[in-house]
Each structure stands twice: as structure tokens, then as C-alpha cells.
Design a binder for these strands. Structure first.
Length: 780
DNA sequence: GAGTTTGAAACT
DNA sequence: CAGTTTCAAACTC
């Protein structure tokens, strides 16, 4: 369509172009006569190409270009994209490029399209939701669609406005438009996934750290306005501005989607319409931001700006919020996260857990991830080798978490985000499931970073929760390192020295893992796997797997008599088996000679008796064994020989899982904890900035969460797992699934393809998915 | 908290 | 595969 606008836009470019010798040359070569009124598209592209090197990526989708026209004006005032900015955005752009619809028509068609995307790319947003399978999600989708329709109608005029001022578009602006368009689309996706959130967070964090221009202000709407103003003045902040816009817009969209509000329509269009005139933008933006608050559904009273920040933050903090679990504050956050994300059905699920009266309620996105990660190396390896979406997800998640924690490179985050996007809803659900299950540990972990959280942990007696490594010579690149063995990056809590198990050294870590794996395919596999069948686990299944059966390789204890943690079998809550080369085996869970009770139950009883009479060490076992007696365990936490991670154990116990404390490498716990820790770190920082908003958020979140939870149904919907605790499903391997302690600690060697059994029920779906995906790698 | 013990992991 | 060394967790004091 040749619109006047385009003609104008193209006019400048064309004029330049025509004057250029190149044009003359081309013209001479081409049999086709050039028409001055080149299609807006072509002209624009040509113009951009001349001016901007970055354009190419932008142009990948015509769609982006069109958007530029409409949105340029709005963004121009804010910023000019610097290279850094661009780079930071890269991920989004990439995603956008990938996602963008195939709009061939540039101008007219494009305009509507962007709107659609803003609405939340149906592809991304919807899928996850479906994955969630919650009524809530469906309702949201409906609302979203309605909102989209409205938006479209609104946008049409705006577009026109933007078109009217095409000439004003500057190269940078153009880029910005692309950005926004892409971003908006991408943002939805990002919002959908936790990873995406993390990425954003990371950006913010990085900015804080001085790495980037991004300011936390992005996250915090309150500061946001001020920053925008500044940004106008100073370009350095430009990035923040764009990011903010993107964020804000997206949140809006998401909110709208979620709540079906129409308000965003107004603000969004405004932003887009921003028009060539730079003047409008700031005020409009602020207004828009304020309007964004409108996005908050349910009439929650939250400052629009704050809300925006909150939304973002919520995403970021979800883990933390979850970690807080019981604390009311947490819920709101989670809710926010949900609102911000159209796709974050998983979060909804998370919220559900929050609702759950169970103490653990904390949903942790991380759980799922953790679960995946738990298989650690397998996961790591699988990621590389396996293309299964789930696997990819797991990796991305881990990466993202790590990234967020630290230096993560954007590049990493990008791939991850993409992966997630691709994986779509499938993963989300699983994540949710996992989260629900694992929440407790996750929370603890997440909290670790923040003093508050620590306090809670301490209060809960979970302080120790997940341990960190303290490697000195291994560089955390050997199985000696629990973190590494668990497939988790080392984080602050770690006391390691010369650690290479960090996102920065991702390549090294991966390569090392591969090496180790090549040497021993099961090196990263859980040492002990519980018989799956989580639901049943409780006593029923116990009989199935003799205690001795589960240990992968068998211990080689000589002096510990398999009565101490030194013994992997004992630590894993599994009886020694024939494969064990232990001497004087006295494994309470089952002796090598089989003298001990084959059934876990028996073992438990026997252990209990022993415990009464025997060493402290055994005591812990008893505690573990007696699922019912959680308290006992807590008291005897010191004794807990099996799981290094008290918190994990507690959770497990609560959940049903028996003790099977994760073997040292217990990937699940460690992994989760770390993820959360990283998130927690981010959260903690953000928290400081965001405290003022918390109240608002809380209000909002509480209601939202409550509503959402109601809608979604109890966490059970997601987790289904009978256990309120939601067993953190451990990783794909199903290690985490261990049958409840009650069930006996049936532990299965990780090496064994336990997964099949995992078909646990409730959590099953999610879990199964994850497990299935991983199986190949892990089983190998 | 420092030192010892222990057994897995790594190495040869 | 076996033996030795290295390592970090577990444990003790």
C-alpha cells in the first residue's frame, strides 16, 4: 500500500538515494525503471539500510519495520539506541525475529500485526496457558483476545498518526521501533517464561552493577518516570527507557490479557502513536505508565508506575516471593508475575501453591528447572546433545538463573529464552508442577540470598537447607563439588575457591561435564533413585524395590560400616546391595548380605528400633524413615545423615517423600536452591529498591493470587501431587520422586531408568514430561 | 573453627 | 581393572 506517509518517508530516503551514484549505477543496470514513489517499504528499507548498519536484523521481518513507523515517534524522545543498548536488546530482537509473523505487507498490514503481537503473541502466550490447562488461563485468553480486538481498533488510528510523521523517524528511532515491536512481541514471550524474567532482571542487575545502562528503575515504576525524563536528557539511560517501554507495554498487554482490561489499549496506542514528535513521548509515556497501572486487574490500587515495576519485579522475584511462601507478600508477587505474563500460566500454578495452606506452598518455578537440573550432568549433557524441548528448557532455566545471579551473558540468556519459547507451554506446565512440588526447598534457597529469607530459614530451622560447596582445588569442576555434581553453578553461599563452576565459565563447565560423563555416563546421575510412583510411594511401593536395589554402584565403605554419611548408600537412604563392596556393612536401610529388611518399611521399623538404641547417626535415619514424624527429624536434623540438605529433607518428609535424602549430589535440592539463590540475589537487590512497592504489590498480588489460585484451583491442579509439599519432583530421573519416606525409602539407582515409574500422578504430568525428556540422557 | 577421618573421584 | 592419589565432605574435638 502506498500511503502518503510512506511516500513522505521514502521521499527523503529516495531523494538521497537517487542522488547517489549507486542509484544511478543501479538504475542504469536495471531494466526496470525506478519509480520515485517507491513503495514505502522498499524506500524505507533502502533508506534505513543506507543509514543503519543494524537495520538488517530489524528488517528481517517487514513487520518490524512497519511498527517502527508507528512507534518511532514515541520512542525517539526517550533514546537513541546505543550499541550496548542494542546488544542488551539483542535477545529480544532475536526472538522477535524468530517469532514475527510472516507479514509481507509492510505498512498497512504491519500496523495491525504489531498490535496482535502486543496483545501477546498468540503463539507464545496462548501456548503456555494451554499448557497450564487451567480455567483461569482459558478465561484469560478469552479476555486477551477481546482486548486484542479492541487494541486493533485503537491502533488503526494511531498508526495513521504515526504514518503521518514518518519523516521524523530517525535511524535510531527506526531501530527503536523495531525494538518496540519486536520487544513487545518478545516481551510477551519473555514474560511467559521465568527465564525471560530473569533475563530482564539480569539486565537490571547488570545495570546496577554498572555493566549496563539499565536501571532498576526499569523495574520500579516509581523511579521509572524520573529516569525517563533523565533518559531524554541523557542518552545513557536510553536503554532503560526502551526497556521500560517494552516492559510496560508488555505488562499492559499481559494484564489486559489476563484481566481483559481495555485501558491499556489507550496507553499502548499512545506510546505507539507517539508520532514523530519527540515532545509527546515523555509525558505520554508517563501517562501510559500510569495507565499501565490500570492494567492491574481487579481494581487493585497500585500506582501504575509501581505496578509496572512490580510486575517486572514480580517476575523476578517470583522465586523469592515463593520462597517466602507463607508470607503474604509473596503471593502478591507471584500474582504480579502472572499478570505481567500472558503466558505464565505456570506462575499461576505457582500461585496456587501459595494458596495452599501447606507450609511449603512456595511454588518455585525453579522446581521444575531444578528437577531438570537435578539430573545435573545428564541435563547438562542432554541439553547439548538432546534437542528435546524439555531438556532445553531445563538448561535454559538453569542458565538463566545463573545468568541472573551473575554475570550471565546475554548471549546465554537469549538462547535460553528462545528455547523456552519453543518449548512453549509444555514446559511451563511441568515447571509449575515441579514448582508446586518442590516449593519448600526452593523457597529456602531463594531466601538464602536475602537476610530476611535467611532469617526465615533459621526460624524454620531450615537454615542449613541446601549446602554449598567449599571446593578449593577442584575448581568446582569435578564431582567432588556438590554444586557441579548437581549440575548447578556455584553461587554466593559457596565457599569455594578458584571456582570455575560459574556462568562465566559455562563452556568450561559443560566441557568438563562432558568429559566426566564420557568417562562415566552415570557420573552425574543420581546415585540413588527412588522408585517412582510418587503417589503410591508411601508404603505401598516400598516393597517393590528392595533397599539394596537402588544404589547405582554400590558403596565401598570400610570403616563407616555403612552407618554414616560417608556411605553413599546410607546417605541416599538406600540399603546396600550386592554391588557394594563395603565391609562390615550395617546399613540400616538394608545390608549387603540382605540381612536387613528388604522393604523400606521394615527398614524403617528396624531403624527406629536401632535408632533408639544406636548412634545418633542412625537417629537421623529414623527421623527420615518416619515420614509422620517430621518434627522428630527436625529436632534430629543434626543427625540427618541421609540428606545433606536438611531443608530438602524436611520438605521431602513433609511431602511424603521419605527421606530419601538426595544423595549428595542431590541434584534437585542443590539445583533448586541455587536457582533460587540466584533469583533470590536478584530479588534481594530488587527488593531493596522495590520495598516501597511491596505494599501495593502485596495488595495486588494477594488478591490476584487468591483469585488466580481460586481460578486455577488448588495447587493440586498443577501439582496434583497429593502431597501438599509437592514433592519437588526431582528431576527427571525421578530421583526426587522418591516414594515418600513413608513408603519406604525406596531408592532406585539413578542409573536405572526409574522414570517410567515416575508416572506419578499428580505431579506426574509435569514431572513425567520432564522426566521423559530427560530419560534418554539420564538413562544412558 | 581446626583438625581428623572417610570414601568417592580422579589419576596412573 | 587395580592401585594410588587427590579431594572434599563428614565427623570429632
Amino acid at each position: 500500500m502506498d500511503t502518503p506517509e510512506r511516500s513522505t518517508v521514502g521521499a527523503a530516503a529516495i531523494s538521497k538515494f537517487e542522488d547517489s551514484p549507486v542509484f544511478n549505477f543501479i538504475n542504469s543496470l536495471s531494466p526496470i525503471q525506478m519509480v520515485k514513489s517507491i513503495d514505502s517499504v522498499q524506500s524505507i528499507q533502502a533508506y534505513q539500510s543506507l543509514n543503519f548498519a543494524s537495520i538488517p536484523s530489524i528488517f528481517t521481518s517487514p513487520h518490524a519495520n512497519t511498527q517502527k513507523d508507528s512507534k518511532l515517534s514515541a520512542r525517539n524522545p526517550f533514546k537513541e539506541l546505543s550499541e550496548q543498548e542494542t546488544s542488551s536488546v539483542t535477545c529480544l530482537l532475536n526472538e522477535a525475529l524468530v517469532d514475527p509473523p510472516d507479514d509481507s505487507s509492510i505498512v498497512p498490514t504491519n500496523l495491525p500485526q504489531p498490535l496482535q503481537f502486543d496483545g501477546g503473541s498468540p503463539n507464545h502466550s496462548t501456548t503456555p496457558r494451554h499448557g497450564a490447562k487451567t480455567d483461569h488461563v482459558q478465561s484469560n485468553l478469552n479476555l486477551f483476545q477481546s482486548s486484542l480486538d479492541k487494541r486493533k481498533s485503537l491502533f488503526a488510528p494511531e498508526r495513521e498518526i504515526g504514518e503521518n510523521h514518518p519523516a521524523n523517524q530517525e535511524n535510531n528511532e527506526v531501530v527503536g521501533l523495531d525494538w518496540t515491536n519486536l520487544m513487545s512481541d518478545n516481551v510477551d514471550d519473555l514474560l511467559i517464561y521465568n527465564l525471560s524474567i530473569e533475563v530482564d532482571i539480569c539486565r537490571a542487575v547488570d545495570g546496577k552493577q554498572g555493566l549496563g545502562d539499565v536501571n532498576y528503575s526499569d523495574f520500579f515504576s516509581s523511579k521509572y518516570a524520573g529516569e525517563i525524563n533523565d533518559s531524554q536528557k541523557t542518552q545513557p539511560d536510553v536503554l532503560s527507557a526502551p526497556c521500560v517501554q517494552n516492559v510496560t507495554e508488555n505488562p499492559h498487554v499481559l494484564c489486559d490479557e489476563m484481566f481483559g482490561k481495555e485501558d491499556d489499549m489507550d496507553h499502548t496506542p499512545e506510546i505507539l502513536s507517539g508520532g514523530p514528535n519527540q515532545v509527546v513521548p515523555i509525558d505520554h509515556i508517563q501517562e501510559n505508565l500510569n495507565e499501565a497501572s490500570d492494567c492491574i486487574p481487579l481494581g487493585y490500587k497500585v500506582d501504575s508506575q509501581q505496578q509496572r515495576g512490580m510486575r517486572r519485579r514480580c517476575l523476578v522475584f517470583e522465586a523469592a516471593g515463593l520462597s517466602k511462601k507463607n508470607t503474604g507478600n509473596v503471593k502478591p508477587r507471584s500474582a504480579i508475575s502472572i499478570t505481567s505474563k500472558g503466558k505464565m500460566a505456570s506462575y499461576d500454578s505457582h500461585l496456587n501453591p501459595l494458596k495452599t495452606p501447606s507450609p511449603r506452598v512456595l511454588p518455585g518455578i525453579g522446581l521444575h528447572l531444578n528437577a531438570l537440573a537435578t539430573t545435573s550432568k545428564d541435563r547438562m549433557v542432554t541439553q547439548d546433545t538432546l534437542a528435546s524441548g524439555k531438556q532445553l528448557i531445563s538448561m535454559p532455566c538453569t542458565i538463566g538463573s545463573f545468568v541472573s545471579t551473575g554475570q550471565k551473558t546475554e548471549s546465554k540468556s537469549q538462547p535460553v529464552a528462545k528455547d523456552f519459547v519453543h518449548t512453549g507451554s509444555e514446559f511451563q506446565e511441568p515447571q509449575v508442577m515441579n514448582n508446586e512440588t518442590s516449593p519448600p526447598t526452593v523457597l529456602e534457597n531463594a531466601e538464602e540470598s536475602s537476610p530476611k529469607k535467611k532469617r526465615r530459614k533459621l526460624e524454620n530451622g531450615e537454615g542449613e537447607s541446601c549446602k554449598r560447596c567449599s571446593c578449593k582445588k577442584s575448581k568446582c569442576l569435578k564431582l567432588y563439588c556438590e554444586c557441579f555434581a548437581a549440575g548447578v553453578y556455584c553461587s554466593e553461599p559457596c565457599a569455594c575457591q578458584g571456582c570455575f563452576n560459574k556462568p562465566i565459565h559455562e563452556e568450561t563447565v559443560l566441557s568438563t561435564r562432558k568429559q566426566i560423563e564420557s568417562r562415566n555416563p552415570l557420573a552425574f546421575a543420581p546415585k540413588v533413585i527412588r522408585t517412582s510412583e510418587t503417589g503410591q510411594e508411601l508404603g505401598e511401593v516400598s516393597d517393590k524395590t528392595p533397599a539394596s536395589a537402588r544404589h547405582k554402584r554400590g558403596c565401598n565403605c570400610k570403616k563407616s560400616s555403612c552407618l554414616k554419611k560417608y556411605c553413599e548408600c546410607y546417605q541416599g537412604g538406600v540399603g546396600c546391595s550386592i554391588s557394594c563392596r563395603c565391609e562390615a556393612c550395617k546399613n540400616a536401610f538394608g545390608r549387603k548380605d540382605g540381612s536387613t529388611p528388604g522393604g523400606a518399611e521394615e527398614i524403617e521399623h528396624g531403624e527406629e528400633e536401632k535408632d533408639a538404641h544406636e548412634k545418633k547417626e542412625e537417629m537421623p535415619d529414623d527421623g527420615q524413615q518416619n515420614a509422620s514424624v517430621q518434627n522428630h527429624e527436625n529436632h534430629s536434623s543434626e543427625n540427618l545423615a541421609i540428606t545433606p540438605f536438611k531443608a530438602c529433607r524436611q520438605l521431602v518428609k513433609l511431602s511424603y517423600f521419605s527421606s530419601s535424602k538426595p544423595p549428595r549430589p542431590s541434584a534437585p535440592t542443590g539445583y533448586f536452591s541455587r536457582l533460587y539463590n540466584t533469583q533470590a540475589l536478584l530479588k534481594s537487590e530488587a527488593m531493596l529498591l522495590c520495598n516501597k512497592f511491596e505494599n501495593h504489590v502485596n495488595n495486588f498480588c494477594d488478591d490476584d493470587t487468591a483469585n488466580i489460585l481460586k481460578e486455577n484451583g488448588s495447587p493440586s491442579n498443577v501439582m496434583k501431587t497429593s502431597s501438599p509439599n509437592g514433592k519437588r519432583i526431582s528431576p527427571s530421573n525421578g530421583v526426587g520422586f522418591s516414594p515418600s519416606r513413608k513408603g519406604g525409602r525406596k531408592l532406585i539407582l539413578r542409573s536405572i531408568p526409574s522414570f517410567p515409574s515416575l508416572s506419578n500422578v499428580d505431579s506426574d504430568d509435569a514431572v513425567n514430561d520432564t522426566t521423559n525428556s530427560f530419560n534418554p540422557s539420564t538413562l544412558t
